[in-house]
Each structure stands twice: as C-alpha cells, then as structure tokens.
C-alpha cells in the first residue's frame, strides 16, 4: 500500500478534534461533557463558596428568605385574604409552594446569565459551554435542599401537633423526579433566554420580572379550586407548565390526588423547551465570542 492510499484511508476517527463550520445541533457531545465533569463540580463549589464569603450569616440566607416570604404570604394571603385551603396550616401550604418555586426561579434566573455573566471566561478558553448552566442548576440544588430541610422540620412539627387528615402520600419518594422536572424546565428556559440575551440585552431585565409574573399565574399563592369561578384565569394557570409541578409537590406532601394529565403536559413542555433551548444554545455557543 502506498502512502497516498494510506492518507486517503485515514478516517475521521483518527482525529480527536475536528473543527469545522457547521456542527449539527443534535450532536450533543456527551462524552466531552463528561470529560469536564470536574469543572462542573468546581464551578458548583465556586458558586457556593464565593457567594457567602464575607457574609456574616452565610448559608443561613437560604433559610431566611423563604421563611420571610412564607410568613408574609401566610399572613396576607392566608390569614387576611383567606386564600389558603382551610384544612392546612397556611405556613405549610405557602412554604411547600415557595420552596419549589424558588428552585425553579433560581435555576432560570441564574442560567439566563450564562453567556453574559461568563463572557470573559468563554472568550478565553474552550470547554463545553453547557457545563456552566448545568453547574448553576446543580448549585441551586444546594439552596433547595437547605430550604427543603427547613420545610421538613416545620412540616414534622405541624404533623405531630395533630392534623386534619393530611399527611405524606406514598408518592413522596417520587419528589426527586419533580425536582428533576423543575431543573430541566428551568435549565431549558434559562439557556434559551441566555442565548437570546447575547444579542438582546433587554431580555436579561425581562427575565426576573417575567419569572415573578409567572409565579402569580401559578398555585404558589392561589389554590386552583379558588379559581373555578373564573374559567379563563383557571385556563391561564393551567397553561403555566409549573402549575402541575407545584400541585404535585403539594399532593405528595399532603396526600392529595396527583394530576397525571397535568404532569404529562409539564413534561411535554419541558422536552420542547429543552430542545429549543439546546438548539439556540448550540448556535450561540459557536458564534458567541464574535458577538461579545
């Protein structure tokens, strides 16, 4: 065999890195992502450590914020407006919703800054860009777990104080699946927004506000049965993919029936958002350094 034939026969596989103009978006390089898992872990650590250096209370802030919101909501919407369900302590009703919502909102708010917030890093060195939003989803999980722990303590307190027939459902063990659903929905929307903010910074301002609005259109504050008299509002609430997730979270804690149809809808929306998110993210990660 002569040399010419040999080089002709050289396969693409002989090269470990091939740089070319177009890379189909669905070719998510999971192997590459896995190779950078240590970076993911370190970025998570960086987020957690750097956030609380030079703060007096440190991680306690994870608890203070949701507790304050819970008591405010429980007082205003629960006691004063009488919106929370009568058979549940308002504090439990609101906190279960707020803790779940906080995780989703945290993921979307933080991942939406993926490109803008890491411009310097990304214009200097290569790594699978998806590591950054993924690390944010993971580091938000730490805050979620602290809040969940706090909730469980309060939950246990009320439970053993005596309850009006509420209690954990056998589906409680499926809570991680709900968290995963929220993580993916938040991540998908976050990377979609982050891809768009590289061109339109306006969206960055809209995100925080939009997420806030979305919360008011979810059962975090208002139980769905209170809305039965206003059908269009109920429809609006049900269109919010987070509504079934919040409902299901409460269902597993308080033993309500689970709305499987709603959860299927949420999962469907999550898949669609995630795909669109990955697609735009992929497009932007390849040209990002030229725009900034």
């Amino acid at each position: 065999m002569n040399a010419g034939l040999k080089s002709m026969g050289e396969r693409e596989g002989d090269w470990s890195i091939v740089i070319r103009p177009e890379q189909p978006w669905w070719r998510l390089d999971l192997k590459e992502f896995w190779r950078y898992r240590d970076l993911l872990v370190l970025l998570v650590r960086r987020d957690i450590v750097a956030q609380y250096k030079q703060t007096v209370l440190g991680p306690l802030w994870h608890v203070i914020q949701p507790l304050t919101t819970t008591f405010t909501f429980a007082f205003i919407f629960g006691k004063a407006a009488g919106l929370s369900p009568p058979d549940l302590p308002p504090v439990l009703f609101y906190m279960s919703g707020i803790v779940a919502w906080n995780y989703f909102a945290g993921v979307i708010n933080r991942t939406s800054k993926t490109f803008v917030g890491n411009a310097n890093l990304m214009s200097k060195v290569y790594f699978p860009r998806l590591v950054v939003p993924a690390s944010m989803a993971v580091s938000s999980l730490v805050s979620y777990l602290i809040q969940l722990g706090t909730f469980l303590i309060i939950y246990g307190y009320y439970f053993f104080q005596g309850n009006d027939g509420w209690g954990p459902s056998p589906w409680l063990f499926a809570l991680p699946a709900l968290v995963a659903l929220m993580a993916l929905l938040g991540l998908g929307s976050g990377i979609l927004v982050s891809s768009m903010t590289t061109k339109y910074r306006d969206l960055g301002f809209l995100v925080g506000f939009g997420v806030q609005m979305l919360m008011y259109a979810s059962p975090v504050i208002m139980p769905l049965d209170r809305l039965s008299r206003i059908p269009w509002l109920l429809t609006l609430f049900k269109l919010n993919p987070m509504t079934p997730v919040i409902e299901a979270t409460r269902a597993v804690f308080f033993g309500y029936p689970i709305d499987w149809g709603g959860l299927t809808y949420s999962a469907g929306v999550t898949v669609v958002v995630m795909l669109i998110g990955l697609m735009t993210f992929h497009r932007v990660e390849r040209s990002f350094a030229d725009i900034v």
Binding site: I17, I19, R20, P21, Q23, M122, S123, F288, A289, D290
Partner: peptide, 10 residues
C-alpha cells in the same frame, strides 16, 4: 472559542 466560516482544522 469560535468557529470557522469555511474550512477545517483537525
């Protein structure tokens, strides 16, 4: 960090 408009590098 960025991608070529045309051509390849391996």
């Amino acid at each position: 960090i960025t991608t070529p408009t045309e051509g390849t590098a391996r």
